[in-house]
């Protein structure tokens, strides 16, 4: 259980972060910039899941965060490989 005002502040900050990252993806001069911003969106997503889980008192929050932390970097690896065009 967390107070509503705390949940509102945290969700607001994270939502603004996602907006900024989307602006960077839009403007980003190179694909690398867009991939880095996508990485940031993923971290903001982990935070959102944590707060929503606490708000709705879902007991599986920690499991979701754990799996997200373990699997998140696969997306970054595949994005990096995509940028390089399959070359190593």
């Amino acid at each position: 259980m967390i107070p509503d005002i705390v949940a509102a502040i945290v969700i607001g900050l994270l939502a603004l972060s996602v907006v900024f990252a989307v602006i960077r993806i839009w403007k980003g001069p190179t694909p690398g910039n867009a991939a880095a911003a996508g990485d940031l969106i993923f971290f903001a997503f982990i935070g959102l899941v944590a707060v929503l889980g606490l708000m709705l008192s879902i007991t599986a929050v920690m499991d979701v965060i754990l799996i997200a932390a373990l699997l998140g970097f696969l997306s970054v690896l595949s994005l990096a490989r995509l940028i390089q065009g399959g070359k190593r």
């Binding site: 690398g32 910039n33 990485d39 970054v76 994005l79 990096a80 940028i83 065009g85 070359k87």
Partner: peptide
């Protein structure tokens, strides 16, 4: 992830 991204950005 940071290392791989930086390397990919540099190589492209």
């Amino acid at each position: 992830g940071s290392f791989v991204l930086a390397r990919a950005s540099y190589m492209t």
